[in-house]
Amino acid sequence: MPSLRDIRRRIKSVKNTAQLTRALQLVAASRMRRAQQRVLAARPYAEAMRELIGELAGQSRAAGADLHPLLAHRTVAGVGVVLITPDRGLAGPLNTNIIRRGTEVIMREEGQSLNVQVVTAGRKGQDFLARRGRKLLGTFTGIIDRGAYDDAIPIARLVMDSYASGAIDRCFLVYPRFVSTLVQRPEVVQLLPVEGPATADDAANTGKDLEYIYEPNPGAILEALLPRYVEVQIYQALLETAASEQSARMVAMRNATDNAKELVQTYTLTYNKIRQAGITREVTEIASAAEAMAASSR
């Protein structure tokens, strides 16, 4: 049986941990609110852009015109993977999940004997892949928390340049999509070549049969729209990652705090039991001693 002093020490240590996790929880909670607002505010633009692309891509295919290079499907020899992860840990299973998904994609493509080039944004993914001795095409850190559009531009540039030079013929974007505070889902989307709307539903909503007037012309609009679209996809993924990170951390730290409180309760109970047992023992000892003395003096 542990001594009272041991238990007292344990309780104190658990309480310290609880204080720490609680502080982290509060910080994450306030950052989470901001990050969630940001990602929700940015979604309408990304969606509107997706619809526009679908509209134009359909149009330019129907016209039999030369497809924009970013839309053209080529024979695939090299594949790019953009892996977006948080910079920091203490976010529950989030990092493990997203890195596992990223690794799956890399393995799958390499399994088809394709040359895979990885770009990471976020320290966690970078560290993991670097530890496994993988050479990275590019690494970006310290940008998840900022949520600035300008941070998405160099990543998009790198990917599009590699695509233009023929180093990669297809590119995937892997990031944790923010679904709710409790749910973040690793998501894989094809960044290049740009695909139209994912579902037939989207296409129906935009009114496929409308005869648009294009100014200056579909090609020129695509020319302006596509690079912007790639940037927006990456920007959106950065925001999703930030919201996911803070949400996952908030929940993980809340669980940790709750667990610590429970532990303190169990320890306190044991502590009191042992204390009470000690007192009872002493009382019986004194009582029996007193009785023995009374008996002998009689």
Binding site: Y212, I213, Y214, E215, A220, I221, A224
Partner: peptide
């Protein structure tokens, strides 16, 4: 401010896509 000139849009305008 359309790229090909300023555009004014009233209700029932034809479908248009411009930079």
């Amino acid at each position: 401010p359309g790229s090909e000139g300023v555009v004014g849009i009233l209700p029932r305008h034809a479908p248009l896509l411009t930079t």
